[in-house]
Write a protein that binds this DNA or RNA. Structure first.
Length: 204
DNA sequence: AAAATGATCAAG
DNA sequence: TTGATCATTTTA
């Protein structure tokens, strides 16, 4: 188990989006650690990408952390009720990042069950377990990720990503990004990546 | 199929 | 200041 270093995040955004699959997200702020295996991501590629919050160089209080260099967390709130976790990428100031869309629960499931359903882990139905972290808003609820993580350095101790086993093999599939129909010529690019046949991918 | 629900942003 | 939008989830 090895924490990903700065150079990982400084790579090209599409590379990071693919390479994050199979890595382990750690949340260690105020409870016992919660760990999830990343199984689904989407790339948002800065000023040219009409789906990206930083499209056309848009720079506001919300998007400010996207202009940090790679290896920071970007958290935004959507539809008034859900948070989404992104990983800032690149070595420039372009405003690029990767949305984490699906996690496979690995550790800290008791805490996740409480956060997401206010229930004990062993009281959850099969359906509830399956739906615990298979979506960007769901996984943030389960891991208690909100704006307190916005701008956090992923090389720190509160939120970070590790590689466990380099021999872990899986098939990577790609497809169109979800719910960005407004993005015109960018709405159909295959910048969503996921581990094939993993049940914690948000959509089939 | 449609409601829930409020921060965000660009326009005025 | 305001109105439309929205990288979602849940319920029906």
């Amino acid at each position: 188990m090895k924490k990903l270093d700065k150079s990982f995040y400084l790579q090209d955004t599409l590379t990071v989006a693919k390479e994050l699959l199979g890595k382990y997200l750690y949340i260690c702020m105020d409870t016992t650690p919660m760990i999830g295996r990343i199984v689904e991501t989407e790339a948002y590629i800065g000023p040219d990408d009409k789906a990206c919050h930083a499209y056309n160089g848009r720079r506001t209080s919300r998007t400010e952390v996207m202009y940090k260099n790679g290896g920071h967390a970007y958290i935004y709130q959507i539809y008034g009720m859900y948070f989404c976790l992104n990983i800032v990428t690149g070595d420039n100031t372009a405003g690029t990042g990767v949305l984490i869309r699906g996690l496979e629960p690995i550790a800290g499931m008791e805490q996740m069950a409480e956060n997401r359903y206010n229930k004990e882990w062993d009281q959850l139905s099969v359906k509830e377990i399956k739906n615990m972290t298979n979506g960007p808003g769901k996984l943030c609820k389960a891991l208690n990720i909100d704006k307190k993580y916005n701008g956090k350095d992923l090389l720190g101790k509160e939120i970070y990503i590790c590689e466990w086993d380099k021999t872990d093999k899986f098939v990577i599939s790609s497809g169109k990004r979800i719910n960005i129909g407004y993005a015109e010529e960018y709405k159909d690019v295959n910048w969503r990546f996921f581990i094939e046949n993993n049940s914690y991918v948000s959509k089939k």
